[in-house]
Lab assay of single mutants.
Amino acid sequence: TRVETATETAWISLVTALHLVLGLSAVLGLLLLRWQFPAHYRRLRHALW
């Protein structure tokens, strides 16, 4: 049971790290898009909202 718990903890930390990385890359990508294509971003936002 001790090994299982350790594996579970490792998986949880791995998944958390993955989610953090994905979230950060998504935010960075959005910022980059907004910085590179302001007109396109505004049009996209206008279409979405």
Rank of each mutant, 00 (worst) to 15 (best):
W11T: 01
V21T: 14
V27Y: 09
L24R: 00
R42G: 11
Y41F: 14
L14K: 02
L48A: 07
L44N: 01
V27H: 02
L20S: 05
L24S: 00
L24T: 02
L28P: 06
V27C: 12
L20Q: 05
A17T: 08
V21C: 13
R2F: 13
T9L: 12
A6K: 10
R45M: 10
T9E: 11
H19A: 05
A6C: 06
E8A: 03
R34S: 07
R34C: 06
L24N: 01
T5I: 02
L20G: 08
E8L: 05
W35A: 15
A6E: 05
R42K: 12
W35S: 15
R45G: 02
G23A: 14
G23H: 00
A26S: 10
A17H: 04
V15S: 03
R43F: 07
G29A: 14
G23K: 07
L14Y: 02
V15H: 04
I12V: 12
S25G: 06
Q36C: 07
H19K: 05
F37L: 10
L33S: 04
A47P: 06
T1V: 12
H40V: 10
A6Q: 11
L33E: 06
A47M: 07
R2E: 12
L32S: 10
H40D: 00
A6I: 06
L24I: 10
E8D: 09
L20P: 05
F37H: 08
R42T: 15
R2S: 12
L18P: 06
W11Q: 03
A39T: 13
L20T: 06
L18F: 14
T16M: 08
V21Y: 03
G29D: 05
S13H: 09
L48V: 10
L30W: 10
T7I: 11
L24G: 05
R2W: 11
S25F: 05
Q36H: 15
L20C: 11
V27W: 08
S25L: 07
G29R: 02
V27I: 13
Q36F: 08
R43M: 09
V21R: 04
L44R: 06
H46Q: 08
E4H: 13
V3H: 00
L24K: 06
A47D: 09
Q36N: 15
A10I: 06
L32M: 11
L31R: 06
S25P: 01
A26C: 12
L28E: 02
R34E: 04
L32K: 00
L20D: 03
W11K: 04
R2T: 12
Q36K: 11
S13G: 14
L33R: 01
L48D: 11
H46R: 08
L32W: 09
T5E: 00
L44G: 03
F37E: 03
L18V: 05
A39N: 15
H40Y: 08
S25N: 14
L30P: 07
V15C: 06
G29Y: 01
E4G: 08
E4N: 14
G29F: 13
A39W: 11
L28A: 06
T1C: 11
Y41G: 07
V21D: 02
L31D: 03
W11C: 06
Q36G: 15
P38S: 12
L48I: 13
S25K: 04
A6V: 04
L18C: 03
L14P: 04
R42I: 08
L44W: 10
L14F: 00
T16E: 01
Q36P: 07
W11M: 06
L31E: 02
T16Y: 03
G29K: 01
Y41C: 15
